[in-house]
């Protein structure tokens, strides 16, 4: 990378780190240290191709997602996270009860596998259609659908407080496609 490229890279990192880090924190289930590792590795890869990248942010985000679901990441030691104590009651239209439910949900999301969490972040946080999620992760639409379904089911197991919550659309249409994800970031 030449001096101009380095300057542009520094500028990009300065301007976009906060936003990218927020996504990395979601992907890491709230683990800030893991998020920093994830983002740093993604930026190292992006820096290697910096002058050939047209849309740096899209590129870095794609690396973030793919790194998170790659086999290497899955084999990596799983971090045990401290999860907030579940509240006594749940549900209803009471705002404080809803806030408590979100705390429970956050703890349950942290305990999903990286792959499950990544698919949920892409579907529900980035609000992407299944086809786009499949393209980003380099897998089939069926795999995205089945992973979403299984992830939501897993959340219910991890947090019984969510039992009263109505099923999501994805839970009503189970998929038979359970092919493993294999991507090469």
């Amino acid at each position: 990378m030449d001096a101009q490229g380095q300057e542009q890279f520094r500028e990009f990192v300065e301007n976009r780190t906060s936003a990218l880090l927020r996504t990395a924190v979601l992907l890491s289930g709230g683990d800030r240290h893991a998020a920093e590792d994830l983002l740093q590795n993604a930026l190292i890869k992006a820096a290697g191709k910096w002058q050939r990248i047209d849309e740096p942010e899209a590129y870095v985000r794609q690396i973030l997602y793919r790194q998170q679901v790659s086999r290497w990441r899955l084999k990596w030691r799983r971090r045990e996270l401290t999860v907030a104590d579940p509240p006594e009651g749940s549900g209803g239209s009471d705002p404080s009860a809803a806030a408590e439910l979100r705390i429970v949900m956050r703890g349950a999301l942290a305990r999903l596998t990286a792959r499950q969490r990544t698919v949920l972040v892409l579907r529900y946080f980035e609000d992407l259609p299944e086809a786009d999620v499949a393209r980003i992760l380099g897998c089939s639409v069926g795999t995205v659908r089945s992973t979403t379904h299984r992830s939501l089911a897993r959340l219910r197991v991890l947090a019984p407080e969510l039992a009263a919550t109505a099923p999501a659309d994805a839970e009503r249409t189970p998929s038979r496609d359970f092919a493993p994800v294999e991507v090469r970031p």
Binding site: S18, L21, R22, T23, V25, R106, Y124, L162, T165, A168
Partner: peptide, 18 residues
Amino acid sequence: NMDQLVRDTLIEQGAQPQ
């Protein structure tokens, strides 16, 4: 429903400044 709860939780967590 679960869709909305997952979405709200992620948006709330993702809005926290880092």
